[in-house]
Design a protein around this nucleic acid. Structure first.
Lengths: 153, 153
DNA sequence: GCAATTTTGTTCAACCTTGTACATTATCGC
DNA sequence: GCGATAATGTACAAGGTTGAACAAAATTGC
């Protein structure tokens, strides 16, 4: 009657996920080292990339995109503003919100940072075919959607 | 002569990686919420699982496995020891090292936590076939190996 | 229109993580 | 054996992240 325990690490899906988590962790560490030359860290990079792509986001928008708390943005963005990378301008129609824009310096830095990020990702994913990459993306998107739907946010 | 910039987000490998990073982030948040009922957080879970599987690890071993700094272990482990989840015993042969063991409470908690983790992963990965999972694991392992080899640690 | 509710951004205290400097102990070269 | 080097764990300061409480502004329901 002693039900033999199913060890999680013998479980294919479990093992698979562990390898994903590990890869992410390593990736973040490598990326952090590579962009340190620009004197920024991964959170700053995420902000720069998002503002590069979507100008005029509010802090709330940005926080939601990055899956972090609003207070996090309230801590990081003023630093970046002081550094001259972004500007925060109040919205005319809604005086609660601050809209975010890259300065010229910020835009230039974002481009340098994205180049580095792209190189790291390329170097990393060159061990896989494009088909494999796209299949991975597919699995991950389904999975994220499943989690977000089930668990709210 | 104006070389049109290749936007990273149009780059298949880049997009693929972003989806992986996003999935990891969501996963960690969901997992953190689920194990909060056991009054532990992801770092504690990682420690419990590793000690469950590899009894007698040293703090250094554990730190390397988890890809974190030694000082991190020096902060977390005494807490867990006070909580009665683990015990740290000096090694006879090498009086520098502390070997780590789960207590009975720790082992019981580890099993509960692993059950939760397995359920979350299953729920998450059930949107994919086993073949897909194994293919993902394959890509991730190659990728981690590539990064670790190239960039030292 | 106006009170109640919601949304946005800030502040603050708590906690986690990291890197550096340090003390202790092993190991290596000789 | 012994001095130089390396490895292990700890202490501490700096910085990142979070959630809760808050103020200001917008929206909703009536």
């Amino acid at each position: 009657m002693t039900a033999t325990r199913q060890f999680p690490w013998d479980h294919p899906r479990f093992k698979s996920w562990i390898s994903v988590a590990r890869a992410c962790q390593v990736m973040n560490q490598v990326l952090a080292r590579e962009i340190a030359s620009l004197d920024i860290k991964p959170p700053h990079l995420d902000i720069l990339v998002n503002l590069y792509r979507f100008e005029g986001l509010t802090q709330q928008d940005l926080a939601r995109r990055l899956l972090v708390g609003r207070s996090n943005m309230s801590m990081l963005l003023p630093q970046m503003e002081k550094r001259g990378l972004i500007s925060r301008r109040g919205d005319e129609n809604d005086r609660r919100v601050l809209r975010l824009y890259l300065t010229e310096d910020g835009r230039a830095l974002a481009e340098k940072a994205m180049d580095i990020q792209t190189k790291v990702i390329d170097r990393m994913m060159e061990t896989s075919t494009l088909d494999e990459c796209m299949s991975v993306a597919n699995v991950m998107e389904r999975l994220t959607a499943a989690l977000l739907l089930r668990d709210g946010r």
